[in-house]
Amino acid sequence: MLPRKILLAADDSDDRELFRLYAAARPVPGLVHVAENGAEVIELLSDGLTGTGLPDVIVLDQNMPRKNGIETLAELKRSPAFRAIPVFIYSTYASEALRVQCLQLGALSVFQKPDSPEAYQYIIDGILRLIS
């Protein structure tokens, strides 16, 4: 089975590196492209991820500069070109209100930011299972 392309948007470089590390180590690896904010996500997608095609899934941090996760999710779901791409939101504080709002906008799931290697592995495995 081919690796899955994941577009991760997170402003924290440690989060980006951990996500990339754990995704690459999965039995069906995830190839992670990264953006530092939601505006960069839209730019990368508009450029076709610089020639490699659209991602299989997008994972958005809620708290980012320029365009946060909810703003980016709303823009993606309004776009005929991008609305079918599954989107996950994660946040340090994944409140019920955030969950409801993101699910109503079309996110597949909302989860709390991982705080351990096991949590990263669990979340990445879940994401890869859902898009396989």
Rank of each mutant, 00 (worst) to 15 (best):
A81Y: 03
G38P: 00
G69M: 08
A94W: 11
E75R: 12
L18Q: 14
N63Q: 15
R66F: 14
D47L: 14
R26A: 04
E43D: 14
Y90K: 12
P55Y: 06
I89D: 14
L21T: 14
G48R: 13
P29G: 04
T52I: 15
G30W: 10
Y90V: 05
R26D: 02
T50H: 13
L54F: 01
G48Q: 12
T52L: 08
S46F: 02
V59H: 05
D47Q: 14
S95L: 07
V34D: 11
P65C: 07
E36V: 04
V57E: 01
V59R: 02
E96D: 10
L98G: 00
M64R: 13
L45Y: 06
S91Y: 03
D61K: 03
Y93V: 15
F82C: 04
A84S: 15
G69W: 09
A94H: 11
A94E: 13
P29N: 05
Y93P: 05
T92S: 15
E75A: 14
V57Y: 01
P55K: 05
R20E: 12
L54Q: 05
I85Q: 09
G53Q: 01
D61M: 06
R83M: 11
A24C: 00
V28R: 14
T92M: 14
R20Y: 11
L60T: 00
T72Q: 04
A24E: 14
L54R: 02
L73T: 02
I58A: 09
P27F: 10
V41P: 10
G48K: 08
I89S: 11
I85H: 08
I58W: 05
R26V: 00
H33R: 13
